[in-house]
Computed example of a mutant assay.
Amino acid sequence: MNDANTFNPSRLILARERSGLTKRSLAERVGLTPKTISNLEKGEHFSIDSINAISDRIGYPVSFFFKSDQEKPMEEDASFRSFSRVTATQKNSALAAGAYAFMVSDWISQKFHLPDSAIPDLGAYSPDLAAQMLRKEWGLGNRPVKNMIHLLESKGVMVFSLAEENAQVNAFSCWQRAEKPFVFLNSFKSAESSRFDAAHELGHLVLHKNKENKGKEAEHQADTFASEFLMPSRSILSRCGGIKTLRSVLKEKQYWFVSAFALTFKLHKVGLLTDWAYRALCIEMSQKGYRKKEPIPGVHEKSQVLKKILDQMRGNGKSISCIADDLSLPEKEIAKLFFNIATVAVPNTKKIEPSSSPPPKLRLIK
């Protein structure tokens, strides 16, 4: 642990990894030698001039590097979609974003009352049965989930966006201190894919809290859970018996708020499409480019919790710069976590001071 007057090498590593830089690339950007960066990250040969140069080039407040050690998601605990295609640099950057989300979440928890976690451990059940049980426990019946992010937040999950401009880091989930669940979603994907990712990560949270959450089998289980959670088999069987054409698939997918491919896969899984019909539809959709661009796209879901917090702050003449100042974080990094809803800066006249009154409750709508 480091006090406020001591340089903290772990903070430099965190900022470098979040910036997607190696020691060599950081050295080149700053005009230092790789040996200098290596020494700084070991806590050796400290130089305030070097820290000032790094701060200036990567856009971090100098004070960031003198804060205490910061908890971040552990690689072994975080579930990444497309894990095998995620490079070490991409993985480290996403995990560093998770560390910043932990900081922001702790800041929010000090000032606002949020729902406690209602994510059960269903690891003893099959993915399909776990999805059915959770739907029943949450009173969803067999109807479509209107908004996955709002639903997760109402059950105590902190949901943040990942502004990663690549297709490899789809999403990931983790637990903070084994108590608070987090889900991170890539904001550059289609609305339908992001919804499925959210359900997929919910699958990891309920199925793999105390089990292995990596590998093909774990990913398959989370996919199976997501499919059943978003499109309950009982409802699909009762509603979709007559679906045979792409036109009918595109119409029905809007009811469930899922991708055309996800619905087609589900129809085949429950036996409503033969192998031949399933292959024919997949070929037709691929030829039309639906793997890269979703037809009849839906609207991207955004965090309700973060929007309400920002609205309340703006009402008091404040912005995310208030959070940035308190946490010594770059404002741009907080904006990246906030689903692009914090792009307009409002002059920051003063910080939110601790209050003796109870923190305000945020009313969340599922």
Rank of each mutant, 00 (worst) to 15 (best):
K269E: 14
P120H: 04
I58S: 05
T245W: 04
S10Q: 15
A78L: 09
S55L: 12
A88N: 10
K361S: 15
H150I: 06
F225R: 01
A199W: 04
S248Y: 05
Q304M: 15
V183E: 00
F188Q: 11
G156H: 11
K244D: 05
L129R: 05
V183R: 00
I54H: 07
S319N: 07
C174M: 06
V145T: 13
I37Y: 01
K336D: 15
Q168S: 12
N147S: 13
P127E: 01
N340E: 07
T89S: 12
W175F: 09
W138M: 14
K302M: 12
I323S: 05
K244P: 03
S321H: 14
H220G: 08
A94K: 00
I149R: 06
F261Q: 11
D116C: 05
K155R: 15
N166A: 01
A163E: 04
F160V: 03
L32M: 09
N142L: 14
C174K: 03
F338K: 08
E41D: 01
H45R: 10
K336W: 12
K253Q: 15
Q287G: 10
S126V: 01
A78R: 03
L129F: 07
V206E: 13
L263S: 10
F257W: 13
G123D: 05
K251N: 15
M74V: 14
S227A: 08
R29T: 08
A171R: 02
L329K: 03
L162M: 04
N316H: 14
C322Y: 06
P360G: 07
H268E: 11
Q312K: 15
E333M: 13
G242H: 05
F66M: 09
P354C: 12
S328Y: 05
K155C: 10
N147K: 10
A262Y: 06
P297H: 05
E153Y: 09
L329H: 03
Y100H: 06
N186V: 02
N2R: 13
P330Y: 02
K269F: 13
I296A: 05
S238D: 09
F339I: 04
K253I: 12
K91Y: 00
A199N: 08
R24C: 11
P9A: 10
E28N: 13
F172V: 02
